[in-house]
Write a protein that binds this DNA or RNA. Structure first.
Lengths: 139, 139
DNA sequence: GTAGAACCTGGAGCGCGCTCCAGGTCAAGC
DNA sequence: GCTTGACCTGGAGCGCGCTCCAGGTTCTAC
């Protein structure tokens, strides 16, 4: 993590699409869709035009998965990926996006916890109904 | 809340669809869709066939909204609504559904919190990049 | 009585995030 | 060399949860 210069044409190991499917849980189609959508920059190819993913591609995919799992839309991921492709100058914008997303996420987690508490109440209500039946509940 | 016998033809106040829209945040179309889908039993009508929602309908809608906000699918809500329509005998089944949903919810909340922590790490990474620039990051 | 807003119905359409398909090319083992 | 499976592309299709539309009826205010 000191130089940061990406090694050009390094002999770093690469992965076939099947291996990336296995490691990420994304499907072949989703991987191709993400590439077509610009979420991931065009991935390296063999002379026969088959994809070979670098470890950096894998790391980026895993980050995308995290964004998706926390509810970021494809459109926003596209925006983030475009910023990233433009290089270091966009770090402040990317940071701002992540902070906003993080704040949204905090809100959603809080809402879920409130709803979870209300569900617990409802469950308690049903449990009481089972203990003392015959009250003909319609709730 | 002692008898539980639903009052037939009571003079309980009712709400127009516009009032329910206002109170629930659901749209006219969503309310009609939920009724058509069987999520809510056919709601009372005026002689002119316009809907009049009872307060119990409102309470049930609010519960449905909670289920939806916690990620329950329409199909599962349909199952729950059908159980409810079959009366007290299905209380154990409804309780089981709610408990399962609650457990799923707990899992999802935990996953979100883990992802939130990872996002915080990423944000910290970007903040450090901004403090000591020039490292040509592509992450 | 009349205007205009609110409401009704069945059914088509939409945005999202994939998923599937057809028809072909490429690569690895025998 | 041949087979077989993995991979390629562009584009159509799908499931979900609504949302919109057309064309008609009802309600409310004046």
């Amino acid at each position: 993590m000191t130089s940061g210069q990406p090694l050009p044409h390094s002999q770093e190991p690469t992965l076939t699409i099947a291996q990336v499917v296995e490691r990420t849980g994304l499907s072949h189609d989703t991987l191709r869709y993400y590439e077509k959508a610009g979420l991931i920059q065009r991935v390296g190819r063999t002379t026969g035009n088959q994809r070979r993913y670098a470890m950096a591609d894998l790391a980026w995919l895993e980050f995308l998965i995290r964004l998706r799992e926390t509810g970021m839309s494809i459109a926003d991921m596209q925006r983030f990926a475009q910023l990233r492709a433009r290089g270091d100058a966009t770090v402040p914008d990317r940071l701002a996006m992540l902070r906003e997303h993080r704040a949204d996420l905090a809100d959603r987690i809080h809402a879920l916890r409130r709803n979870a508490a209300a569900l617990d109440d409802k469950i308690g209500h049903y449990e009481r109904l089972l203990d003392q039946p015959g009250s003909d509940d319609l709730t």
